[in-house]
């Protein structure tokens, strides 16, 4: 076996690529021609609504989770020991168990506990607690926070001390240092993994369909039940998620390019 030699830079349209693209086109054509797609018209608005629901869930949980992750990372780096240990334990707990289990624990477990207390049932929160999405939101947010919290811990710890000392030498207060130097530098460092985590989060969102939240996955499940089709809806769903992932990756790449970096 030869040692690894980096391949020469390749053009998009080499002869074998043209052949592969033609083959792929033929497969797509067969899929469109021979499979049944007549249900698409009936469900298109529901599908769009489901995609919107999925995206909303993704961005709201990632946003809230990221704020929590910053806190978790910060506490682990600077916090008093008991707090740091609690934060680390939280991360281990969430990262060590499947998200599906956490979701069902919250929805069925916590939901049934809530239902047993008349105080909660008569409180103003009950109309929300009876629905599924608060549980889905909480589970997804906690999961994102735990995974990203580990990343933020490393990012906070990895900001060069000299930069923080320089900020102090400029007479910045601790909070200003955090706001102007420490947090932005840590986020820059975490950005490449943040994009990966966000894609992972997108891929976790369909789990909420198992607790009756209506996202795009749930719509497709309903199509499957209504039409008795196995493959067509699932293939479309895979395509939708691939497009969403691609868009997310592109967005993050644009964001990363905007951040000034030295060298490389």
């Amino acid at each position: 076996m030869p040692a690894y030699v980096p391949p020469p830079p390749r053009r998009l349209l080499e002869p074998h690529r043209i052949f592969l693209i033609a083959l792929f086109g033929a497969i797509v054509f067969c899929a469109v021609w021979f499979l049944r797609w007549d249900w698409l018209e009936k469900y298109q608005w529901k599908l769009l609504h489901g995609i919107w629901e999925t995206l909303f869930l993704l961005f709201s949980t990632a946003g809230a989770g990221f704020i929590l992750a910053v806190l978790l990372g910060l506490v682990q780096v600077t916090g008093p020991k008991p707090l740091a240990m609690i934060a680390r334990g939280f991360c281990t707990l969430i990262r060590g168990t499947p998200l599906l289990l956490q979701l069902w624990l919250l929805y069925y477990g916590l939901g049934s506990v809530f239902a047993q207390y008349p105080e909660i049932r008569h409180s103003m929160f009950w109309p929300y607690l009876r629905q599924a999405w608060p549980y889905g939101f909480t589970a997804l947010m906690l999961s994102f926070a735990a995974y990203e919290g580990e990343v933020m811990r490393g990012a906070f710890a990895g900001v060069p001390r000299g930069e923080l000392e320089a900020a102090r030498a400029f007479g910045m207060s601790r909070f200003t240092t955090f706001r102007r130097i420490w947090l932005p530098r840590a986020i820059y460092r975490a950005l490449p993994t943040l994009s990966g985590e966000t894609v992972l989060q997108l891929k976790s969102t369909p789990l909420v369909a198992t607790i009756t939240v209506v996202d795009v996955y749930a719509i497709i499940s309903r199509v499957r039940q209504d039409t008795y089709l196995t493959y067509e809806p699932l293939l479309l769903l895979a395509l939708i998620y691939m497009c969403l992932t691609g868009i997310l990756v592109l967005l993050f790449r644009m964001l990363e390019n905007r951040i000034p970096s030295r060298g490389a």
């Binding site: 690529r17 891929k203 976790s204 969102t205 369909p206 996955y217 691939m242 992932t245």
Partner: peptide
């Protein structure tokens, strides 16, 4: 080249679609 491209498609598609759907 063909093997490489096919493998690239395999890894990209699998990593872009949720495990549940796969």
């Amino acid at each position: 080249p063909i093997v490489r491209d096919l493998l690239e498609v395999y890894t990209t598609v699998i990593r872009a679609v949720p495990e549940l759907v796969l």
